[in-house]
């Protein structure tokens, strides 16, 4: 199918992008790789009046080492994330999840910023951002602000970004020694969206789990943390049995959808099974 007509502005600078968005009003949208947006335009499920293309803003691309954290420029493609040595060294969970996004050609165009700003609860990277407790950095007319993942994802395809704000980067904590991780994406075919995904981070100390952080994909209208399972895992022995007890609480407090790709009860069940498996893998149990 064919997109409806829209105006197009290629931003020369970040400030230019912000002012173009401000001038474009509610129906202006940012585009970078377009891998989420263009299919929606083609299916005529989105009708922006103006697209502000930030794709040329080279400053927003690449990974910066900022001591305790990495800042990943919003325009860094999934493919670049999977190949970046800093990400590999300090945030393997993100690399592992980025490898599961769509397919190689889409990963060449799709960006981490686009994926996170699109805020699809079936998306992999919003979940990882949530599990990592990432901070989203946005630029608007009033300058820059940092938004924690818990505040950033508001609802289905909805973030707390203002219409005239541009997501410029994602700050993720460096995972020190002792942290293990696993992203498990359960989809029906290789390219399909996750029915359920689990991003698990486990810090081990003295043969036990000292801390666990678990994000769930497609278990609600936004990416969610499995709080009860995290609490149950903390302090548990790093054994399959103990972690299964924690995994069994993964769906507590979630409100998964029932749709073509899975009924809510099946999603709850999958979340429990996959969380157990992800915890076991992350803990090296």
């Amino acid at each position: 199918m064919i997109p409806a007509a829209f105006d197009y502005h290629r931003a020369a600078t970040l400030d230019d992008a912000v002012s173009a968005l401000a001038g474009g009003g509610e129906d202006a949208k940012v585009i970078s790789g377009g891998q989420s947006l263009i299919p929606l335009l083609r299916l005529r499920l989105a009708f922006p009046s103006l697209l502000v293309d930030v794709g040329g803003l080279g400053d927003l691309r690449g990974v910066r080492d900022e001591g305790d954290s990495l800042v990943i420029g919003a325009l860094t493609t999934h493919d670049e994330v999977t190949r970046d040595p800093l990400v590999a060294q300090h945030c393997g969970l993100l690399r592992e999840a980025a490898e599961t996004v769509a397919d190689p050609a889409v990963r060449h165009r799709g960006t981490i910023g686009g994926s996170i700003a699109h805020a699809d609860p079936a998306g992999d990277l919003p979940t990882v951002a949530t599990a990592l407790g990432a901070t989203m950095i946005a630029r608007g007319p009033g300058g820059e602000r940092a938004i924690g993942a818990g505040d950033f994802f508001v609802d289905y395809l909805t973030t707390s970004l203002a219409p005239d704000e541009v997501l410029t980067g994602v700050r993720v904590p460096k995972l020190g020694a002792g942290w293990g991780y696993r992203y498990l994406k359960f989809n029906r075919t290789a390219q399909a969206w996750a029915v359920v995904g689990v991003a698990a981070l486990v810090r081990r100390a003295n043969g036990a789990v000292a801390e666990a952080r678990i994000g769930l994909t497609n278990m609600g209208t936004k990416p969610v943390r499995a709080d009860a399972a995290e609490a149950a895992a903390a302090g548990a022995a790093a054994t399959g049995e103990a972690l299964a007890a924690a995994g069994a609480r993964a769906d507590e407090g979630t409100d998964p959808p029932s749709d073509l790709h899975g009924a809510a009860d099946y999603r709850r069940h999958l979340a429990r099974v996959l969380t157990t498996r992800a915890l076991v893998a992350a803990a090296g149990a």
Partner: peptide
């Protein structure tokens, strides 16, 4: 297709594969 799934339209853009149905011509300037 309309949704980047089939890949029939794959070309190389600046040396890497992309799906040319999920890109605007203007972005290829």
């Amino acid at each position: 297709c309309d949704t980047t799934n089939c890949g029939a339209c794959t070309v190389q853009l600046n040396g890497v594969s992309v799906k040319s149905c999920a890109m605007l011509a203007i972005q290829a300037d």
